[in-house]
């Protein structure tokens, strides 16, 4: 009985602790969204011009890829709860592949910008209007920080997958996988807001 009670408390505090951590992440990006909002308010025309340079197709593709990967992570939790570990691992493997697709897209997107000599501190960027300079600064910082979170999310998911294989994540003990999932969904959540602000509002 006491064992069971401890287990329940463990689960609840574990979920709450994860959410508290996610709040700090939300405000890390929230601060950048705030800066974006203010600069966009001050330089509306230049943000419009600079936003046109971004490829909406690549942005949309990456949105679709991240949304599907969120679903596969959510499904892997269902699979573990239904004691279907092989399926759970398969779904996590698909998530990994989708995350890599996202990163490869991002790689091509950024290298394309580098070819146009658009990168922080580049001579082309320095001769641009102030608003455009600010837009690209935020673009590189925000998508870069987001991409870093994709990589961290992958590492966290890897540990959850390892837990499934080792038997520390089971249908009775899903907390590690659930928290890894929460982190992954946060990455998706941030992209849901980044995508329209960078690629769509032009």
């Amino acid at each position: 009985m006491s064992d069971h009670e401890e287990h329940v408390i463990d689960r609840e505090s574990g979920t709450m602790g994860m959410w508290l951590f996610l709040f700090t992440e939300l405000f890390l990006f929230g601060g950048l969204f705030l800066v974006y909002a203010v600069f966009r308010y001050m330089h509306p025309a230049e943000f419009h011009e600079a936003g046109l340079e971004l490829d909406t197709f690549v942005g949309t593709l990456n949105t679709v890829v991240l949304l599907i990967s969120s679903m596969t992570v959510a499904m892997s939790i269902t699979a573990v709860q239904k004691k279907n570990n092989a399926l759970a691992l398969g779904l996590l493997a698909i998530t990994t592949i989708l995350a890599l697709v996202f990163m490869v897209n991002k790689y091509f997107e950024w290298t394309h910008k580098f070819h146009l000599v658009i990168y922080p501190g580049s001579p082309v960027l320095e001769n641009m209007e102030r608003g455009e300079l600010l837009f690209y600064g935020l673009y590189f910082i925000m998508t870069g920080l987001h991409a870093l979170h994709v990589i961290i999310g992958l590492i966290v998911l890897f540990f959850a997958g390892y837990g499934i294989m080792k038997g520390t994540v089971t249908s009775e003990r899903t907390l590690l996988l659930e928290n890894a999932g929460l982190y992954w969904h946060l990455v998706d959540l941030i992209w849901i807001f980044l995508f329209p602000l960078m690629y769509l509002i032009t």
């Binding site: 679709v64 959510a74 939790i77 709860q81 239904k82 249908s171």
Partner: peptide, 26 residues
């Protein structure tokens, strides 16, 4: 076992429907 009962199991179907809605909105 009792802890398991407290947890909600979202079906594969529900997850799929949510994805379709999200893709539609995108």
């Amino acid at each position: 076992m009792e802890e398991h009962d407290k947890q909600h199991v979202t079906s594969y179907y529900t997850n799929g429907v949510i994805l379709v809605v999200l893709l539609f909105l995108t």
